[in-house]
Computed example of a mutant assay.
Amino acid sequence: MSRHIAGPEIERLIQLLARLPGLGPRSARRAALHLVKKKEALLEPLGKAFADAAQNVRVCATCGNIDTSDPCTVCCDATRDSGTLIVVEDVSDLWALERVGSVRAAYHVLGGRLSPLDGVGPEDLNIKQLLTRIEAGGVKEVILALNATVEGQTTAHYITDMLSGFDVRITRLAHGVPVGGELDYLDEGTLAAALQARTAL
């Protein structure tokens, strides 16, 4: 049985930090200790930032992005091609694509992926909202930018079936050899996908 070595406030901070992705109990203790030691420089500004985020951050009703406005900054951007809709699993995927900056399209965040083993079905994702956006018209291409996992591909197939009755072009991200990748270090699945998606020179 572990003993408490700090006051309840610090223990609570450690427990909350340990819930964050990538932080276990040991990392949470180190982070909490660092924050407490740097109270004025880190802990207090971080607490204010958390409070501001809790009060002002909201989910965009149009695309599912997280922002301080609804509709979000991406949806309000008139320079984007609203005829191209990129479907992603999570907000982190949207942010990753935005960092690349090569596509000026609209987005739709599903909020996860189909996973029957985890009890995640179509009704648990923002698929109905996606169909509503397609039905409204104006979308010419749907890019399925879903992760190359079994669940991601299952979700892509399901969405493709659901959109089969609409006059939209459905594409997906290419899978295969990454830029700078060496064949000897790639797994069989990546190599197989690269061979199937080969292009002419």
Rank of each mutant, 00 (worst) to 15 (best):
D118Q: 05
N65I: 11
W95N: 05
D81L: 08
G121D: 09
L117W: 09
G101S: 07
E89H: 06
L42R: 00
K128Q: 14
E123N: 07
S82Y: 08
L17H: 03
H108S: 10
A61K: 03
Q55Y: 11
D90S: 11
C76L: 10
D124N: 14
S69N: 08
H34Y: 15
E44M: 06
L110G: 02
D81C: 09
A51S: 14
R133K: 08
Q129A: 15
Q15W: 03
N65Y: 14
D93W: 04
T62H: 04
A106T: 06
V59D: 05
G64T: 01
A41H: 07
K37R: 13
Q129P: 14
A53S: 11
L85P: 05
V100C: 06
A31L: 15
H34I: 03
D124G: 04
E123C: 02
D81Y: 07
T68K: 06
I66D: 02
V57K: 00
L20H: 05
V59N: 01
L94H: 00
G112M: 08
G64E: 05
L131I: 13
T132Q: 08
G112C: 11
W95S: 05
T68D: 08
L33A: 07
L43Y: 11
L97D: 03
L94Y: 01
L110I: 09
L117N: 01
E123I: 07
R26K: 15
A49I: 05
A41K: 13
R58F: 08
D67E: 12
T84Y: 09
I66G: 02
V100W: 05
N126Q: 12
L130Y: 07
L110Y: 06
C72N: 00
T68S: 11
E9S: 14
G83C: 03
N56R: 13
I134M: 01
A32C: 09
R104F: 14
Y107W: 14
